[in-house]
């Protein structure tokens, strides 16, 4: 489908939360304001920023969970969905059943999921444990199942929130190799949210740095991650000084 180039564009997107303060009092807070960017098909786009900078809210807007209160998102690429590892997993169900659940939650038909189920089992590396209830799994095993179950269902835009850190080194290598392979494909577009500068630099070409819900920097990934790291250093320095002043 490489010939039909679509894009994902955010134009002055703003999202407002209304916080409850007491019985009738409410206070509005902008989680995102004036956020604009353009992502082309096949691109992998980074969003960096501190906790509470609006990264997750942005992914919710892109996945259609939230509608922007200001501005708009224009998506001509196709369905965008969040890579939702372990989402909706049920402890008493087996690995196989949870994999089916994951596929259904991602909008797949049951028969499509069943066609893929052996690949999912293989990728998870769980072997016979695939038939056991996941309540008996270690957190690493659950993570592997979660990754395997979401890997096979490709939306046009894959939104990834934080790194996949589950499993042992062997699995991480396997997962990372598969991700890199997917990232190379021209069909799929990625939006990658992370604290991990190293990972972002490895996987993405462009991106934005969000600070207090606004775009603090945009452009190629080196520029924005450097600017972000610099601000982090300054913040840490300011904190140390504040502590020193208090102590002094």
């Amino acid at each position: 489908m490489g010939e039909s180039m679509g894009e994902l564009v955010a134009e002055n997107v703003g999202v407002r939360y209304s916080l409850r303060k007491g019985m009738f009092a409410r206070r509005d807070k902008w989680a995102l304001r004036n956020v604009s960017f353009r992502i082309e098909q096949g691109d992998s786009f980074a969003v960096v920023g501190r906790n509470g900078s609006g990264k997750s809210t942005l992914l919710r807007v892109l996945s259609g969970v939230f509608r922007p209160d200001e501005g708009r998102v224009v998506n001509t690429l196709g369905p965008a969905s969040l890579l939702t590892i372990n989402l909706g997993f049920v402890q008493h169900l087996s690995g196989r059943e949870n994999a089916i659940m994951a596929g259904l939650l991602q909008g797949r038909r049951r028969r499509d999921v069943l066609r893929r189920i052996d690949d999912i089992k293989e990728l998870s590396g769980l072997g016979d444990a695939f038939e056991d209830p996941i309540a008996s799994y270690s957190s690493g095993m659950t993570g592997r199942l979660g990754f395997a179950a979401s890997f096979y269902f490709d939306p046009a835009v894959l939104l990834i929130d934080e790194a996949f850190s589950a499993g042992d080194d062997e699995f991480k290598q396997k997962a990372s190799a598969l991700m890199t392979e997917k990232l190379k494909s021209d069909d799929m577009t990625f939006v990658f949210v992370s604290h991990s500068i190293a990972q972002v630099r490895q996987l993405c070409r462009h991106g934005i740095w969000l600070e207090n819900g606004e775009v603090a920097a945009e452009g190629d990934v080196e520029t924005i991650t450097e600017a972000y790291q610099e601000s982090q250093k300054q913040r840490a320095q300011a904190q140390r000084e504040a502590v020193a002043r208090k102590a002094g």
Binding site: R60, L82, T84, L87, G88, L105
Partner: peptide, 8 residues
């Protein structure tokens, strides 16, 4: 948790 992550 599903409502916050999936457009369903």
């Amino acid at each position: 948790s599903l409502v916050l992550r999936l457009d369903i």
